[in-house]
Nucleic acid binder design. Structure first.
Lengths: 243, 243
DNA sequence: ATTAGTAAACGTATTTTTTACGTAAAGTTT
DNA sequence: AAACTTTACGTAAAAAATACGTTTACTAAT
């Protein structure tokens, strides 16, 4: 199995999770014993690719192993190729020990991914080493992984303005205020509720349903759904998305 | 020299050239004799990277070798990793013959670049195999290079709307109509001259000079320059650029 | 010197979009 | 039925985009 790894190219994935109140990143805890000393490293999920494996498939595979989820949104966003990126030497040593390969230089292709953390209905079953960290409490990571997280966040914010990414973080039927909150948390500023609604109402591909929120002690909100088909049909028209 | 090549990773560059009337791509003619048969292959400029070379430096190096130019705008835009991308077999054979390496799978990182073709003042000295092709007359290329050109053009058009790329294609001092023409050619549609000027006049980082066009048989146009410093200072404000 | 030709440069009215607010409506809980 | 909470609708003002018409500054030809 190990013999089939390509020791020159890897993928790393910045898995963003949304839990109704904040944006988080999924990181991997790695406990590693060297010369009797126990070390604790934290890193992005990622690995060397296989000899004949397309990169996107490597990324999917790693994501499924970590979360049990399939068909998750994944987007390639960068290349990290500094010949010295595997420093400091002890991190490189760790990599060589764990792969049993004579690792020299690894160019990594980065992906980001979007997951709804607490939707009761998905079958998210995290692997034991995986842990969610709030986006502004990311600890020090190995190699250049902090830099990759930052780059991923920049791209996420940029693409959030032009692509319908928000629906990856919403249930099939959602309320406009949920949609608004996702924008506010990811973009990092507040939006005027009344103008936001007006804007959404103009979008033909966000369909109001004849269903309402239930079990709340106030006026129940109407539910909406995203019509992806209609969105794609109108695609040539939009250069931006919302906000 | 050859021994230092990394046979797993390459860069390919889509060099866009602008010559006042149309957009062109720089391609490489390769004449190759195999079993007495002469073959003519056309490809993107690109090569395997060196063992310890950053990708951006490989791209710069290749570009300078081809054009004699330095400090040209270069932007990484994609990764092409299909394990079968080096097909058909005869192309792979050619690659193995010319590098003398046991090439198996190559992942390529793509860049695009912007050059003003006919500005008398630059020292463009094309290498003999290099040839400009109008963007809609690109011939069949080896491997997946046609696909890379298409992807590069898509990205160029997209980024032209949000980044100040136009100034890479203009002399230091330029006329508004030159600027407009660049937009029209790259975006592929015409713009209303009067509204375009109004829009530009609002941008504080496009500075009108007290100089005019000379030697023309009509009202001479005012010259302008781009204040990059001011642009960067205002950067947080713009999500889009012009048009 | 006047006129013709050419492209630059300015202006204005109309429509559309964005922004900033105020207020009513529909539920539950007490 | 009164208090509370959140949804939902509306309107006026400012800003931006669009669609045009007209004037200006120069050279070249007569």
């Amino acid at each position: 199995m190990v013999i089939q790894l390509n020791p020159h190219i890897s993928v790393d994935i910045v898995v963003f999770g949304f839990d109704d109140n904040q944006l988080k990143v999924l990181l991997i805890n790695d406990h590693y014993t060297k010369n009797g000393k126990q070390k604790h490293l934290i890193k992005l999920p990622g690995n060397l690719i296989m000899r004949k494996e397309p990169l996107a498939r490597s990324a999917e595979r790693i994501l499924t192993e970590l979360t049990g989820l399939r068909n998750i949104y994944l987007n390639q966003f960068g290349v990290f190729d500094d010949p010295a990126r595997l420093h400091p030497p002890e991190s490189l040593e760790w990599l060589q020990d764990t792969t049993s390969l004579p690792i020299d230089r690894v160019v990594t292709i980065s992906y980001y991914s979007l997951i709804k953390i607490n939707s009761g209905s998905n079958n998210l079953s995290l692997s034991p080493e995986a842990e969610w960290f709030p986006i502004n409490e990311v600890p020090e990571l190995i190699f250049d992984h902090n830099q990759i997280v930052e780059a991923g966040l920049d791209i996420l914010r940029k693409e959030f303005l032009t692509e319908p990414l928000c629906f990856e973080l919403l249930p099939e039927k959602f309320m406009l205020n949920q949609l608004q909150k996702i924008y506010e948390i990811i973009l990092g500023f507040e939006l005027d509720n009344r103008n936001f609604r007006k804007r959404i109402n103009r979008l033909e591909y966000i369909i109001p349903l004849n269903e309402r929120q239930t079990g709340v002690a106030h006026k129940p909100a109407r539910l909406y759904k995203f019509d992806k088909q209609k969105y794609n049909d109108l695609e040539k028209q939009h250069t931006g998305f919302v906000v």
